[in-house]
């Protein structure tokens, strides 16, 4: 399964004046939704057997992701290391992950989360599937494997769709796939004893264009609640409520 090392969204500080985001003091961990994915992968691997490999791509700062994914049940973990400060987008990420999955060999199922908790771009799984030439099943909330066939239930708004495909395949799952138990300290501290590997992205033999980002982030601004500081002081209760209602309607709230 593929996991992403991110800054915890709840720790981001937004400067109310400039709306710029300070992630400097934010706690880092694997993306919140990835935890559900790892657990789902652990359950599937428990049923069908086989090695559960955690895979992450990112700068050197992402190395602790390996321990977390190992603590959550992976048998081994691989960090494809991007150079410090390298620009990474969905295109680069997918190439790096797909190339490493190819190197692992004999992979039956790749699990990604539908979206990461920082960018929520919904693109990594489908891109990886496309690069590998494998079927892609998205928005999955139930998952099972029988022999070489994958059964999955997809969420389409209010509708559930059941699909099947032959393995190998790439599946992107939604958090409703199941809860992610908190790993105990024993598993956490024992994670360091499981095998893990760091592979510089340059060792994957990817062509230059694969590592060239296609998109550029030109600005990143937070939402800041703007207080209007309007006081409705005049009139009796009925008039105040009417003024409040019309004010909310004017703002487009009602």
């Amino acid at each position: 399964m593929c996991v992403k090392w991110v800054a915890s969204a709840s720790d981001l500080l937004v400067d109310p004046a400039t709306r710029t985001i300070d992630a400097g003091r934010a706690h880092r961990a694997i993306s919140e939704y990835d935890r559900n994915t790892v657990e789902a992968a652990r359950v599937v691997a428990g049923h069908v057997g086989g090695d559960l490999v955690g895979l992450t791509f990112g700068g050197p700062e992402a190395t602790p992701a390996l321990k977390e994914v190992l603590a959550r049940g992976a048998d081994r973990a691989i960090h494809v290391v991007a150079p410090q400060g390298a620009r990474i987008d969905g295109h680069v990420t997918a190439h790096a992950l797909a190339a490493q999955i190819g190197r692992i060999g004999d992979v039956g199922l790749v699990l990604c989360t539908e979206g990461a908790s920082d960018t929520y771009a919904h693109e990594t799984g489908p891109r990886v599937g496309e690069l590998l030439g494998w079927p892609v099943v998205t928005n999955v909330r139930e998952l099972g494997v029988e022999g070489t066939t994958l059964h999955a239930v997809r969420v389409l708004g209010d509708v559930l769709e059941t699909v099947e495909c032959e393995l190998p395949a790439v599946v992107t799952v939604v958090p409703e796939i199941g809860p992610a138990p908190i790993p105990g300290l024993k598993a956490l501290l024992g994670a360091g004893r499981k095998p893990s590997e760091q592979v510089p992205v340059g060792d994957l033999g990817l062509p230059d264009h694969a590592l060239m980002p296609r998109t550029t982030v030109t600005s990143l601004l937070g939402f800041v609640a703007q207080r209007k500081r309007i006081r409705i002081a005049d009139g009796d209760a009925r008039e105040k409520v009417a003024a409040l209602m019309s004010g909310l309607a004017q703002e487009g709230v009602l």
Partner: peptide
């Protein structure tokens, strides 16, 4: 340390969710 950070991650999750 890295191990202590990992322990903190677990404890924080426990505290936040439970």
């Amino acid at each position: 340390t890295e191990d202590r950070e990992a322990v903190l991650t677990t404890v924080r999750e426990f505290v936040r969710t439970e």
